[in-house]
Simulated scan of single mutants.
Amino acid sequence: MDIGEFATDVRRRVQEARQALLVAESESDFYAVDVRTGELNSLLRMAAENDVTIEPAPADRQSTKG
């Protein structure tokens, strides 16, 4: 896997983790929220350590506007 494929895979996995976290939150599944939050934090840390740029989550973009 080259760096382009790695970056694409990490970005896809971050998007999937964010979506899973939203579902867990909407279902008030606190255990799943904890699991998905940990997964997302791990992926974001991996991205940062490998210089993979990750777009802010839509909620993050909204909170920075103003």
Rank of each mutant, 00 (worst) to 15 (best):
Tyr31Phe: 09
Val35Thr: 04
Ala47Ser: 06
Ala32Pro: 01
Tyr31Met: 06
Val35Tyr: 07
Pro58Gly: 02
Arg18Gly: 06
Asp60Lys: 01
Val23Gly: 03
Val33Tyr: 04
Leu21Cys: 01
Thr53Gln: 14
Tyr31Ile: 09
Ile54Glu: 01
Phe6Met: 10
Ala59Gln: 02
Arg61Leu: 05
Ala24Gln: 04
Leu44His: 02
Val23Tyr: 09
Ala17Ser: 12
Gln19Thr: 09
Ala47Lys: 06
Ala20Gly: 08
Thr64Ala: 15
Met1His: 10
Ala7Ile: 08
Glu25His: 05
Glu16Phe: 15
Lys65Asp: 12
Ala59Arg: 00
Glu5His: 11
Arg45Ser: 09
Ser26Met: 09
Asp2Leu: 11
Glu27Asp: 10
Ser63Arg: 14
Asn41Phe: 03
Met1Gly: 11
Arg61Phe: 01
Glu25Gly: 07
Glu16Trp: 11
Asp29Glu: 03
Asp2Phe: 11
Ile3Thr: 15
Gln19Arg: 13
Gly4Gln: 14
Glu5Ser: 14
Tyr31Asp: 06
Asp51Ala: 15
Ser42Val: 04
Ser28Gln: 13
Gly66Ala: 14
Ala7Pro: 12
Thr37Arg: 08
Glu5Thr: 13
Thr64Met: 12
Leu40Glu: 04
Leu21Trp: 00
Thr53Ala: 14
Arg61His: 02
Ser63His: 06
Arg36Ile: 00
Thr53His: 13
Arg13Asn: 10
Leu21Gly: 00
Arg36Thr: 02
Ala20Pro: 06
Gln19Gly: 11
Glu27Ser: 03
Leu44Ser: 01
Leu21Phe: 00
Pro58Phe: 01
Ala57Asn: 00
Ser42Thr: 11
Met46Lys: 15
Arg45Met: 08
Tyr31Ser: 08
Glu5Cys: 10
Ala7Asp: 12
Ser26Trp: 05
Val52Ala: 09
Arg45Ala: 14
Glu27Gln: 10
Leu40Gln: 05
Gln62Trp: 06
Leu40Pro: 04
Asp60Glu: 15
Asp60Asn: 04
Pro56Cys: 05
Val14Pro: 00
Glu5Asn: 14
Glu55Lys: 13
Val52Cys: 07
Tyr31Ala: 12
Gln62Cys: 04
Gly4Thr: 14
Glu16Gly: 14
Leu40His: 03
Ala24Arg: 04
Asp51Arg: 15
Asp9Pro: 01
Asp9Val: 08
Ala17His: 07
Leu44Asn: 01
Glu5Leu: 13
Asn41Gln: 07
Tyr31Gln: 09
Met46Val: 14
Leu43Tyr: 02
Leu22Thr: 07
Asp29Gln: 02
Ala24Thr: 03
Arg18Leu: 03
Ile54Gly: 01
Arg45Gly: 07
Pro58Thr: 01
Ile3His: 15
Glu16Tyr: 13
Gln62Arg: 10
Asp51Gln: 14
Met46Pro: 05
